[in-house]
Design a protein around this nucleic acid. Sequence first.
DNA 1: CAAGAGATCATCT
DNA 2: GATGATCTCTTGA
Length: 215
Amino acid sequence: MTCFTLNQNSVQHTTFPTIRNRLKLPRSFYEQPTVEVARQLVGKYLVRKHPDGTTVGKIVETEAYVGPEDRACHASRGRTPRTEVMFGVPGHAYVYFIYGFHHMLNIVCERKDFPAAVLIRAVEPKEGIPLMQARRRTENLYNLANGPGKLCEAFAIDRSLNGADICGDVLYLEDHDEPIEKIATRPRIGVDYAGKWKHKPWRFLIRGNKFVSRE
DNA sequence: CAAGAGATCATCT
DNA sequence: GATGATCTCTTGA
């Protein structure tokens, strides 16, 4: 009589890779409180379609900028042509140019007429890495998108995308149905001028991840 | 490796 | 006219 046994090795060899759903985040996702969106965006995927190719990265670091009271939020200095997008419908991109060099990518959140957005600070490159390397003029995977200016360069994001629908087909976010990661909170970076608001723990990152801008 | 300077321009005063 | 949700390179320990 033949006896079939199942040991650990045979189990490994017959296990299929997990198939995970890829769900484009709907507008309702961005209609939550901004701090909540910032926390939940960590671990989601940023997808950028471009004539030169598609780039994809897993978000590993975000920051929340919340409303007219938040002195670190651009909109705390009023409704101007620049901040207009933040007052608009959630789920749109707020892209601005700063320091004469860099673009920053934000997602408008919460509700119309309440100016708030989440800054995408760093992603872990997943697809289109050669394209990112060419745009960034470096091979180093850890230096492609570990900062808000760097990721905009790697993903070819500039002011032409300001106001773009983040629920469209050019620039959007996906949930890949992966296990939840350990998220840490930190004060936001570069907002020392913001008084008591600079202490808010509104930066979110994957603890120990090597693609964050800093721990 | 920490600290500092320089790059450079849209935006608001 | 000043400044900024940054990055890179240089300097010096």
